[in-house]
Nucleic acid binder design. Structure first.
Lengths: 335, 335
DNA sequence: TATGCGAATGCAAGCGCTTGCGTTCAGTGG
DNA sequence: CCACTGAACGCAAGCGCTTGCATTCGCATA
């Protein structure tokens, strides 16, 4: 594997010139630059990131933290970020810090210290200590899923989105509305889920409809959780006529539960989700669509911009949501 | 950010000793080792991967290639690999090479040259040139989803799994069986999908049942593709009584299509999938479960083993599949 | 022809580690 | 008491780049 030294010798120039030529820096004549490039290509030369990193102090690598990779939402966000990073010539180092143990270890050892130019946190709720620990890294930071001091933040209007969903149900004439939320401390205790909850209560309050507590279920953002929550709600003496699920996956679970109970959707119970999961269309699920990939991509872009400017100034971006109505809330589809 | 130099000075030893102490190498007394460790911790020292990499020629990084991240299957495999790599102290560099453009660029530039100790390819069918290009890297290679020369390979018995599924249908008395496969050149043109197809034909042949070509649909491994395929099959003058879908996601799509046509599952048409997708349980889908996470984890382990032994010898591992029967093929569940 | 001046290029000192080898030193057997 | 030994430790030469500064060179200007 050729080194810059060998390329320099082969091209009859110094290593300095090779370095400058290959990195498009000024101070090299066009003739020389071409020759160096050709020689380098012929020798199948590729720069040693380690050496380059040592010399410059920059790694051209971005660390990305996710709680899971195997869930649709995170996969999408990750894909969006990866695409932007890759086309900017940055490598992406993936850290999955879902379980408590891995997480604890991650923040203790902080393996990305000195090995990453920036860090992107995807929808992972950080404790104060954890975010401080990241700030100590002294590199540009990005966050998807809420606003965060010192982080370039990208999020959606969760409250607005939630209102969209619940008002839609209310407009259909529903008053007996149940809600399936994420989880106890709201699962990942992110602002997003909480906002959607608040939106539910606010929309109900708008119409002066009291919220029935036994119609509030917990589904930890999973399909099976959604099903369990729905079953629990159905165990109540009264039955709602509509359900607002805070994620599509929980909505899917709920729909399965309803099917098992032979309860017709939307005839007997209407249901609306949140996310715009790829399967929502097939399932005929009405949902609040968020631009998932774009969230990851935008966050990556903000990060790269800050990296290039070398500034410490962070930016915030709020992305739009949109209600897509399907057969799970309107009877006009065969269901 | 402290360097080894500063730690050495603070601990009153040479950098050599610090290096050896921290890396658990012999030649340091226990007393010294402890002192160094304490000092390093106090100073919040962390090694510079670049410098270390330059000096040793090893990066403690593994490159992972995936065609997508946002699909359940890939997410799971990736998660399995990540976990193993992380706990072995390796960082994972993610490369998504789904689209043709990114892929072409990836193999041309080969950004992981010199920046990775090993490469893991997840269910991505490589052309001969592409795999040769990886072999040129001269690092241990791993592959999930089939056998590959020069790669530590992990796969499942796709043919056996397919037989399991189809025989199950046959045993239920079905003879009119349709199949939804991945895609034209079998989508990612991996051995796996092809094997499952062959299994279908073999199982049918076992029972001397001819395959009806108009009951073979193409669903590109997606939910919507599965739905389309099912619709196309239903457009045939004859209607099958069972369907074998080569992936759960396509099976989900097919089930939605059936529901839209008000065709009862399994009463009128039974359906069996392949994968063990997390939603298969909720959907009551019978399926051939494969140990997805484990596939990623095993491949990572093989890679690490080879890395540690420094050998060039690769290994192959075949993981088991299992048929899980649910309500989509047996009527005993309310569906 | 002498002089000046950019542009092009080379020199060499790092960047922060690792590691082969030499040195020191306490302990041991003769 | 001395030579010897092995463990513990330090020296310093890299690893392959980048980059500030010095040098060279071609060419226009005086």
């Amino acid at each position: 594997m050729a080194t810059i030294e060998e390329v320099a010798r082969a091209a009859g120039v110094s290593t300095a010139t090779v370095s400058r030529a290959l990195r498009q820096q000024p101070g090299v004549s066009e003739r020389t630059r071409q020759r160096v490039r050709t020689v380098a290509e012929e020798m199948n030369y590729s720069i040693s990131r380690s050496a380059s990193g040592l010399a410059t102090g920059r790694t051209r690598r971005v660390g990305v933290l996710v709680p899971f990779v195997s869930r649709w939402f995170f996969g999408q966000v990750l894909a969006g970020a990866e695409e932007v990073l890759r086309s900017a010539g940055y490598d992406l180092m993936l850290y999955v810090v879902g379980d408590e143990e891995g997480r604890e270890r991650f923040f203790r050892e902080l393996p990305l210290r000195r090995s990453v130019d920036a860090v992107l946190v995807l929808t992972l709720s950080l404790s104060t200590e954890e975010s401080d620990r990241l700030r100590e890294l002294d590199v540009p930071l990005g966050f998807v899923g809420g606003r965060m001091d010192g982080f370039n933040s990208v999020w959606i209007d969760d409250h607005g989105g939630g209102m969209l969903a619940v008002r839609h149900l209310l407009n259909q004439g529903h008053t007996d509305i149940a809600m399936i939320h994420g989880g106890a401390p709201d699962a990942l205790n992110l602002p997003a889920p909480h906002e959607r909850c608040t939106a539910f209560r606010d929309a109900m309050a708008e119409h002066e409809i009291p919220v029935r507590e036994s119609w509030l279920g917990t589904g930890d953002f999973s399909v099976s959780g959604g099903r369990r929550a729905m079953n629990r709600i159905l165990a109540d003496e009264l039955r709602p006529t509509a359900v607002f699920a805070m994620s599509d996956e929980m909505a899917f679970g709920a729909m399965h539960a309803l099917r098992n109970h032979k309860i017709h959707v939307p005839g007997e119970i209407a249901i609306v989700g949140f996310d715009g999961h790829e399967m929502s269309e097939c399932s005929g699920l009405s949902t609040v669509v968020q631009p998932v990939r774009q969230e990851g991509g935008t966050a990556a872009k903000l990060l790269l911009e800050q990296l290039e400017q070398g500034s410490t100034e962070t930016r915030d971006v709020v992305l739009p949501t949109e209600l897509v109505v399907r057969s799970s809330t309107t009877g006009d589809d065969s269901m």
